[in-house]
Write a protein that binds this DNA or RNA. Structure first.
Length: 651
RNA sequence: GGGGGGUUAGUUCAGCUGGUUAGAACGCCGGCCUGUCACGCCGGAGGUCAGGGGUUCAAGUCCCCUACCCCUCGCCA
């Protein structure tokens, strides 16, 4: 009986533990059939648990009974064995024409095997819908539907276990630094603004709803008011917004708040944490402090506030130049953009020199080619130096998908002519020369242009820049490529002008502290909301925002001015955040904090493709769970109990 | 809400300009095999071509609608 074996027999080792030093020992292993190789006489099985694989051998000369049982074993059956560790012995090598040790260098336990004397099958398994193996290709859809099988795959297990290690390291780091791990409610009051909330109807309060917390933001500030001084929490947050490869509706933050600190104190703590995590996971020493980049400069050079600084191709703003030449410059659409207070940006794509490609990408493409072309004399195509005309046309389709009207470009011939550049047909030679000067473009280069409304141009050019870097193998499709470029993006403006409503709105949450030297622009004779910068910061890694925070406004007087500037009446403010405003009146310490995206951190540190690879049970892009079928129907009675009526749109 | 890509055997894919019996690899089943390790060899089974509608003598292939998956803009810190 299975239970007998378990109750009488203790597991002695994991499947990743045994080494040559164990040879001769009696051991007991439990695990799953990972792979079987039946030679008729001998049967080899790779036994798998979360720690690794161990080859076990069934030899009829050792145990006829165990061998007979092993003949029936199939993939993913669960069983336990008792046996003796032995050396793998010798194997004839044709290459070396002699006997060599039969070790498997691919396995940590490759020096040994276990000769089975007793076996107990705990459970059979149906043939799984896909192999539990790292080397096979299965659609993510299938994998999500059978997530518990997918989670058996060693590569995915490793990622999930790394995440567990990160959680432990994070807790110990913060505790070591005097932080308290404090909990906050998930179910709170709905407050407008920011992300859309998931709502939970209240049965005890007909017609009322809780909102699931999009973050513990307000609560953690209350912890500071309450005097806890240093808070952290590894906490789930909920946002009912569209998903992306780096966005899930429920996700985990490392949430932090500190009293009596300035911006640099927060940076120091977070740099220390990230240093610790990279040391723990990769054994790497991440250099600190991280680089600091002004928000405005980031927008100018990269078009977004989370630049990937692993490669160049920075943007050049041409507004000044076009304005100087005026309509006589000969590029009417750009001149019009200047008139309409739009933005004109250029980006230079130079031929990629040998050795500038990402070595990982080169290697991966080579291997893929070798797999597809087994003939060893087949010549591997070289890495791309530049874009073909067809690829440039594809780029145009790509940017038009983001709402661009087209992709203006100029290919610089060796003789200095501008080709493929109808837009510059009538451009003054002096203007062209000035563009070359500003962008640094040389013969052989390709210059790409966007002009139009500022936010759109930024977005398109930012995405185009990354797209090109991947296309030209400057960075891998995913993963770090050996470069971990951490960066703080700092000093953003506090307000954002909203074209639609013609008002200034908070670009961040309403409790971000303006810089002292900007206070005079909040109101009075010098008022100019575009000049109000604030203590707000994002920490960025290789083009992903991994966290963001701010120093908070703890002074009710300044708070009142900010609300007024945003057109929020005292009444409004009271109804939205009355409890926090009250709290600030009772002696709030200066405080500030940050929240790091734990999922993003995990997926970057493990160099996986998507957040779904570091979340054990993730949602699809439509927010569904392919395994459980959530979200699902509920019956009328349940809805009635909650005083809720459901009215989905007719098909 | 918009743009792009996809859905063919259990899995990953091929299937040309519409043409008569829809293929491959892996997996699965059976047989053989005492040193394999993504074992090997021989044989076999396995298909609602996502669903619905249309065009046609004829549809996996062309057209329309729907569903689902992925990337992305908007949205989202």
């Amino acid at each position: 009986m299975a239970s007998d074996f378990i109750s009488k027999t203790k597991r002695s080792h994991s499947c990743g533990a045994l080494r040559a030093s164990h040879i001769g020992e009696q051991v007991v292993l439990f695990g799953w059939v990972h792979n079987r190789r039946d030679h008729g006489g001998l049967i080899f099985i790779d036994l798998r648990d979360r720690e690794g694989l161990t080859q076990i051998v069934f030899d009829p000369a050792v145990s006829r009974e165990a061998h007979a049982t092993a003949e029936a074993l199939r993939a993913e059956w669960v069983f336990g064995i008792r046996g003796k560790v032995r050396s793998r012995g010798l194997q004839f090598s044709k290459k070396e024409n002699k006997e060599v040790p039969a070790t498997n260098p691919n396995l940590a336990t490759g020096e040994i095997e276990v000769e089975v004397t007793e076996i107990q099958v705990f459970n059979k398994a149906e043939t799984p819908p896909f192999e539990v193996s790292d080397h096979i290709d299965v659609s993510e859809e299938r994998r999500l539907a059978f997530r518990y099988l997918d989670l058996r795959r060693p590569a995915l297990q490793k990622v999930i276990m790394t995440r567990s290690k990160m959680n432990a390291a994070t807790r110990s780091y913060f505790v070591d630094n005097g932080f308290l791990e404090l909990e906050t409610p998930f179910m709170g009051r709905y407050t407008p603004g920011g992300a859309r909330n998931f709502l939970v109807p209240s049965r005890l309060n007909p017609g009322k709803f809780y909102a699931l917390a999009e973050s513990p933001q307000l609560y953690k500030q209350l912890f500071m008011v309450a005097g806890f001084d240093r808070y952290f929490q590894i906490v789930k947050c909920f946002r009912d917004e569209d998903l992306r490869l780096d966005r899930q509706p429920e996700f985990t933050q490392i949430d932090v708040e500190m009293s009596f600190v300035a911006q640099e104190d927060v940076f120091g703590i977070i740099e220390g944490l990230l240093k610790r995590l990279w040391k723990e996971v990769h054994g790497l020493d991440v250099p600190t402090p991280f680089k600091r980049l002004d928000f405005d400069e980031s927008m100018r050079r990269y078009g977004n506030d989370k630049p990937d600084t692993r490669f160049g191709m920075e943007h050049t703003v041409l507004n000044g130049l076009i304005e100087k030449f005026g309509v006589e410059g000969g590029v009417a659409p750009m001149w019009e953009t200047v008139q309409q207070k739009g933005l004109i940006k250029a980006l230079v794509v130079s031929p990629v020199a040998d050795g500038q490609h990402d070595p990982g990408v080169v290697k991966a493409k080579e291997e893929a080619f070798r797999r597809a072309n087994p003939n060893p004399t087949a010549k591997v195509p070289p890495p791309p130096k530049e874009l073909s005309r067809k690829e440039i046309e594809e780029l145009e389709q790509y940017v038009m998908g983001m709402g661009a009207k087209g992709l203006a470009r100029a290919k610089l011939a060796e003789n200095g002519d501008w080709t493929q550049a109808p837009l510059f047909k009538n451009a003054k030679p002096e203007l062209k020369a000035a563009i070359l000067e500003a962008t640094g473009a040389k013969p052989g280069d390709l210059i790409l242009f966007q002009f139009g409304p500022e936010p759109k141009v930024h977005t398109i050019m930012a995405n185009l820049r990354v797209h090109l870097a991947k296309k030209l193998w400057l960075i891998p499709e995913f993963g770090a490529g050996g470069k971990w470029n951490f960066l703080w993006v700092v000093n953003p403006p506090l307000f954002e002008y909203d074209e639609e409503s013609k008002t200034w709105a908070a670009a961040h949450h309403a409790f971000t502290r303006p810089m002292d030297e900007c206070l005079k622009y909040l109101d009075g004779p010098e008022q100019d909301l575009s000049k109000v910068y604030c203590y707000r910061y994002d920490v960025v890694l290789n083009g992903f925002e991994i966290g963001g925070g701010s120093i908070r406004l703890h002074d009710p007087a300044v708070q009142a001015k900010v609300f007024k500037a945003m057109g929020i009446t005292e009444e409004d403010a009271r109804s939205k955040f009355g409890f926090l405003l009250d709290a600030l009146k009772f002696g709030a310490p200066p405080h500030g904090g940050i929240a790091l995206g734990m999922d993003r951190l995990s997926f970057l540190i493990t160099e996986t493709e998507s957040l779904r690879d570091v979340i054990p049970f993730p949602k699809t892009q439509k927010g569904t769970d392919l395994m459980t079928g959530a979200p699902g129907d509920v019956d009328e009675k349940q809805l009635r109990e909650l005083y809720v009526k459901s009215a989905p749109p007719a098909k």
